[in-house]
Design a protein around this nucleic acid. Structure first.
Lengths: 206, 206
DNA sequence: TAGATTGTTAATCGATTAACAATC
DNA sequence: TAGATTGTTAATCGATTAACAATC
């Protein structure tokens, strides 16, 4: 694997390739060309070949890509070849909904702990997980080796939760709160903000 | 307003500006410079000035931008100056969670109808909305003038729901299902897929 | 062999950033 | 006036696409 700097755009496409390859695999399709992939995913075939070529030579000239092999390789690239433990703070409606994705995330990631600041939520069970109080966050994250934190609290508390995640040693954060959070450079943050997504859609209405 | 083609990157930043400006307004801050905005939002000031300049001359040289005026202008650009009616299909955990954002979306958008294919869900009440059966989708969407559709059903049913939205006359779709959906060119689709977001985060773990 | 498709280089396209005259 | 900050042009940077030799 070359140690070239890979752009964020490339990294964001990899999970999309992975998902489609998994569908092909389920349908017992064994080989796929960049042409096929491009058509199904609305992407340029040259772009797909280039994306994959950053990480190695996974295809065969004249043939295409072996589906099972490419799945294996992309999972390695994304570090999804072993289960990554995830923690979530904010056991409201959205947090609860995300916990139910555990089944879908199997093999790749698992939400292993849920926290909430409200005493009425602590102790509730969500999908076999007992909601824990915030003062157990650091200890739990460390003992379960949690690497990614999900924030589903109101905007006003997002920064505070992010600070606690960082303090506990989490390496990356997925923030659903409609609020920019500040963290040290070495921590990766992605925003998954439903409201800005909806608002930018409105621009395209006639 | 120039009828130059505005890039998607620009449109996606506008709601972020809007959100921050609203916070400033609440704190009774009346003027803000591109410098200030850039610092708080982790963006280049020149980029912010350029983004806004696509749509008009909203600032004053030597002074900066009037917060209230800029809020008004961005809302106009995003067509958020009157409430946009939204419908949602899929009254599962995620769908239910999103319905509760109505309060947060006030002024801009409102989820006015919820549908589900399951008979056990139909008739349930979510946040003052009664879940309706799929066979009422077209009629309801047309009579309520719904312009944006949200999909929160399992991947396997997403395309089918998208087809029904298009057939009913929806102009844009926000798709939460982990599945690429195909629609006619004039319909705008944004993907808000939690699982690909998490998976691309994993790449950045050490 | 002939046809297909990769990996990669070169060309194009587009987005970000720097710089600065205009002006509040 | 002096200092600040915009709007905009030019320079830079980066990402996408086209083209094609290599080769299965």
């Amino acid at each position: 694997m070359k140690t070239l700097k890979i752009s964020e755009a490339v990294v964001r496409r990899l999970p999309i390739y992975l998902r489609f390859l998994n569908e092909l695999s389920k349908k017992s399709v064994h080989t796929v060309s960049s042409q096929d992939l491009g058509q199904k995913l609305d992407l340029n075939p040259a772009q797909i070949r280039k994306d994959l070529a950053y990480f190695g030579e996974f295809g065969k000239k004249g043939i295409g890509y072996d589906v099972a092999y490419l799945i294996e390789k992309i999972r390695q690239i994304l570090k999804l070849d072993k289960v990554i433990p995830v923690a979530l703070v904010g056991a409201g409606n959205l947090g609860r909904a995300l916990c139910n994705y555990n089944a879908y995330l199997k093999d790749n990631m698992k939400i292993v702990a849920v926290f909430d600041a409200s005493e009425t939520k602590v102790g509730e069970s969500i999908n076999n997980l007992k909601v824990k109080p915030m003062n157990e966050l650091k200890e739990t994250i460390q003992s379960l080796h949690v690497r990614i934190g999900i924030i589903t609290v109101p905007a006003a508390e997002a920064q505070n939760v992010a600070n606690q995640f960082v303090e506990a040693g989490v390496e990356a954060i997925l923030n659903f709160a409609p609020m920019i959070i500040k963290v040290p450079n070495e921590i990766r943050v992605h925003h998954a903000d439903f409201t800005t997504e909806l608002q930018s859609l409105a621009y395209y209405l006639d």
